[in-house]
Design a protein around this nucleic acid. Structure first.
Lengths: 217, 217, 217, 217
DNA sequence: AATGAATGAGGCTTCATTCAT
DNA sequence: GATGAATGAAGCCTCATTCAT
């Protein structure tokens, strides 16, 4: 299992942008500072200092503090998120996951690890989405596509074999996300406990999920 | 089903405090303003104006802006939350919910409605908990007590009758919260859709829950 | 001839306002600084320092830098200008100016001295009017009233006696202002020469005016 | 009557300078921007954008923002103004204006139209002169020369014929400028009314002037 | 207890200017 | 000659907090 790292992918995306090295630094440190302290509690002078850049430079490119946030969110939505998604689906395919249990096992542990390892970045995004509900539209469109496409095919296959209840994909995924969330949200948003055992947690989550998603004959 | 209203209970608690009418007003409008705009984006002068009070008055009692927040959070934790909890359990008892389905039906719809109706207040609290992780300790202690006490008894009863899987209470509740969350979180934190149908959503959630929590013969 | 002093009248008006001593100081020094350096070249920190006040104080009351300017212009328009006008007309009456020459002599020298002595303040106003053409409306309304009222009566009297050409008051006054301006504008806006001789200049202006305003028999 | 256009003459002067096309563009748009918004309210980046030029280019040649202004004012004073003056005098001569009335008629209407049509440019200059009183010296020297030269001759001719009062040229011109100003200043600096009728205004001004400048027999 | 004027630190942003390419 | 990223000083303004009344 090779979990993707948002920060790395973000840096890669930046490198391919036409931003100067300094501007890239601004976005990089901003992402981290916003994650640590929140958008409102991070000052632009703090960003400038952390990026080793004058305060003027911060505004030359991004115009406003809001602009910095948008310059982070946009490429993540446009480039990083698709990369994360496709990597995830490729892994699913390449690991030849024959039965529902193997599938769940892999998917849940992978995504759980992903969430834990990228919790800082996830925090920034969730906070931004709360602040700017318009993003929901973009996000849910993307999600819809993915669900009807790649995931849909996989789930259908299990439904056909009678391993998976015959609910709508939307409902099944909401179910999986709900359970995953019950393990992940406390770690990401509240108390990140050092001794969190992703393997054990995901095993437990999978058990619950299989119990709930197996058709009653 | 008579869902409790946090704002009303909060006001009631304030009235029983030894705060002057003006100080009470400060806390009341602060709760609303924090919910609408967030703590950082709400200024003390805004609070003063909305409360019909001078700026000095705001600080006379609460010393700092943080102090206002604490003066809101504390009574909620100490009085409102317990009231909400005990009202909830009383209802559960009084409605004589014989089987697991009835119990789930009632509990889920009740809490879902509660979350939707008090979403502003819930937002303040969740945001505050994210900001100040120390609160987690207090909260989880309280939760632990409740779970081992009142809820524990109810769940045990269903387990004994073979209607409920024999998992730990903690796990069952996490499961329920996860499912509930998958319906409620989007409504509370992201896009509060006007046409959200709590009755239908809770019915669906209950179905999922029963499917997953019924022991496999 | 007792020429009125705008700065003094402005201070008096301020004293009767409900502004605190510090706020009054802000307006007073602002008037002077704006006159000396212009609105754009005067910084708010400069104003604060000159008024012996913190920068916050400046904004507490006047909200914006523009607000300071408006807080100066408004009372001048509403109180100082009317006082200046009525003092001027009272003097005209009390000096019992029988013939046109005496009238002109008095009026021109009085207004010329007024302009020279208050040139700083006049500069602020003219600049402000150029910046904010809306003020023109207010000003011209006031002017219209005065012209049709007090001045009109005086001029009519000279017309009746055949001492003054039978032109419209508007035209006569424009004429007088034009001539006066040709002496005063250079002094007020360009090069205030120390050796400007108001007595001589006004005498010359009067001569020109009489020449041009006496009916050709 | 073919009134000269300052902007056109300025462009022509620029074309004959050794400035590159881009540098010329900088000066051209600066003149317009300064006129519209004033020197202080126009930023160098605004100039660069409007001129379709990089910010560096603006400073490469003109060193400072002040430098841009000087690079505008100097050629106007050295080339445009003389061209305007000589064109004006040529017209006066070529139109064979026999009597004082014809002369006045032509001169006043011509200059009034000139002022109205070039009001933007005049504003820049007047504002600059207010800002930088040193220019007055240069200007008044030039003016002196012109007055004692070309205009002096013309006026003398009318004096000789007894059509014009025997005042000093300076005084007569100040008189004419005063009257002209009373019509032109409101249009240029305050409220440029669309329905301003230059023909009618100049006729009225001439009437006043003749009345005042004709010797009393 | 309540007021509201006053504070000054700090926030975001603009701007003229420089300099490596 | 031209570019445009980078600078950092300074500008306007906000804010939490204090204090005399």
């Amino acid at each position: 299992m090779q979990v993707n790292n948002v920060e790395t992918l973000f840096k890669k995306t930046l490198r391919e942008s036409d931003l100067s090295a300094k501007q890239q630094a601004v976005l990089q440190v901003s992402l981290n500072l916003f994650a640590e302290q929140g958008f409102d509690r991070t000052s632009t002078s703090e960003i400038a200092k952390a990026a080793g850049v004058s305060e003027g430079t911060v505004f030359k490119q991004f115009k406003t503090k809001e602009g910095i946030l948008k310059a982070i969110v946009a490429p993540v939505l446009d480039h990083v998120a698709p990369m994360v998604a496709s990597e995830f689906f490729d892994e699913l395919k390449n690991n030849n996951l024959g039965d529902l249990r193997s599938f769940m096992q892999y998917a849940i542990q992978d995504r759980m690890t992903f969430a834990i390892e990228n919790r800082q970045q996830i925090k920034v995004f969730v906070q931004e989405v709360i602040r700017e509900p318009k993003l929901i539209v973009t996000l849910s469109t993307k999600l819809q596509t993915v669900m009807n496409g790649q995931i849909g095919a996989v789930l259908q296959q299990f439904k056909d074999r009678g391993e998976l209840v015959d609910w709508s994909n939307m409902r099944i995924i909401q179910y999986m996300v709900g359970i995953l969330g019950s393990y992940v949200v406390p770690q990401v948003f509240f108390a990140p406990t050092a001794d969190f055992d992703a393997a054990k947690a995901s095993q437990e989550a999978v058990e619950v999920l299989l119990h709930g998603l197996t058709p009653v004959k």
